[in-house]
């Protein structure tokens, strides 16, 4: 019988030897939205040994335009994305061991899991989780591949511990309040393109062909026809708190985590970012109005409805999410609308 991987084995940088390595690898995908769906399907079709996929959300109708693993049935049943993903992935390739986790991937979870994996694929929608992934990657020596997209724009970078700069070197501060897929929209080709960059790099890492890694921060805009690939090696910082000589992994510490609290008897969750922020409420109002939302704003706070929830954003960065007592549901809404 001709192997189902014959075409991949014919590709000489992989070959039969590379396929063996792929089939004995264990990859963690964090997030099962658009990027996570695409990456999971590609890796499962490529025949990795084991896949762990984690997501805290459930399937909604607005996901179906781009999240390739899900069907109308999943949206009707409000199935958790991790479970719906596992079902579909198992139907695609039953020889891959798939572990689905309906969970909020935060510090405790990631620290407990990290050392098991050969590679972590970022398919999250927020920088808070990415900074945790970054510190975990450095602490346990596991490479990770950043990918993100909004509108027709996408970006990706491959982080190899002890070799490349880390995310903290590149960012210096954690971005707050950027555009998100739920505020600025997203087209599916931007997703596929980022997935293609991430999975090409993933395959190189899994077969051990590190010399072929891109080594550059890549970004593109498919609508404006722009492309850029920049060598960011010079941004690696000797004194970086996440990857430098005297590192402290700041994003694994309690002080740097976003705090949540369920407000008793109010069906409300409060989310408080680690540092006091100065949110630009006026800019946020403009974006939300463009989406056709009804927004109320005064100098201290802004309030808007995302049925059946109401979100109240304070100038100091705190957010109240009314209409839920579920912390991970609240965090999901927070990252979807506020970046």
């Amino acid at each position: 019988m001709i192997s189902r991987y014959s075409r991949q084995e014919l590709f000489s940088p992989i070959g039969k030897n590379g396929q063996k390595k792929i089939s004995s690898s264990h990859v963690l995908i964090i997030g099962a939205g658009a990027l996570g769906s695409g990456s999971a399907e590609a890796l499962v079709r490529a025949g990795i040994g084991r896949l762990t996929i984690v997501d805290r959300d459930y399937v909604e109708w607005s996901n179906l335009q781009r999240q390739q693993l899900y069907s109308e049935e999943d949206a009707k049943n409000r199935l958790p994305k991790a479970i719906a993903a596992k079902n579909r992935l198992h139907a695609i390739n039953s020889s891959v061991e798939i572990e689905a986790m309906v969970a909020d991937a935060s510090v405790q979870e990631l620290e407990a899991w990290a050392s098991k994996f050969d590679l972590i694929i970022d398919a999250t929608d927020n920088f808070e989780t990415r900074m945790i992934i970054n510190d975990v990657s450095q602490k346990y020596g596991v490479p990770w591949i950043y990918g993100a997209c909004v509108g027709s724009y996408g970006i990706s970078y491959t982080f190899i511990p002890e070799k490349t700069p880390c995310l903290a070197c590149l960012l210096e501060t954690v971005p707050l309040g950027g555009l998100t897929c739920d505020t600025a929209g997203i087209i599916s080709p931007a997703v596929s393109m980022v997935v293609s960059y991430q999975i090409s790099e993933a395959l190189k890492i899994l077969v051990g062909d590190l010399d072929s890694l891109r080594g550059k921060l890549v970004s593109f805009d498919l609508w404006k026809n722009q492309f850029s690939a920049v060598n960011v090696d010079s941004l690696k910082k000797e004194d970086c708190p996440s990857c430098g000589a005297t590192r402290s992994y700041p994003f694994l510490s309690f002080e740097n985590q976003t705090k949540t609290a369920v407000l008793c008897g109010r069906n409300t969750v409060q989310i408080r970012p680690p540092q006091t922020a100065d949110r630009d409420l006026e800019a946020l109002e403009t974006i939300l109005i463009q989406q056709g939302r009804v927004v109320q704003r005064n100098p201290f706070l802004l309030s808007f409805q995302v049925d059946p929830y109401r979100m109240v954003v304070f100038k100091d960065g705190r957010v109240l999410i009314h209409g839920t007592k579920d912390v991970s549901e609240a965090k999901s809404l927070y990252h979807r609308y506020l970046g």
Partner: peptide
């Protein structure tokens, strides 16, 4: 060359 970071996914 200008690359800006985005968070969506």
């Amino acid at each position: 060359e200008i690359v800006h970071f985005v968070g969506g996914g």
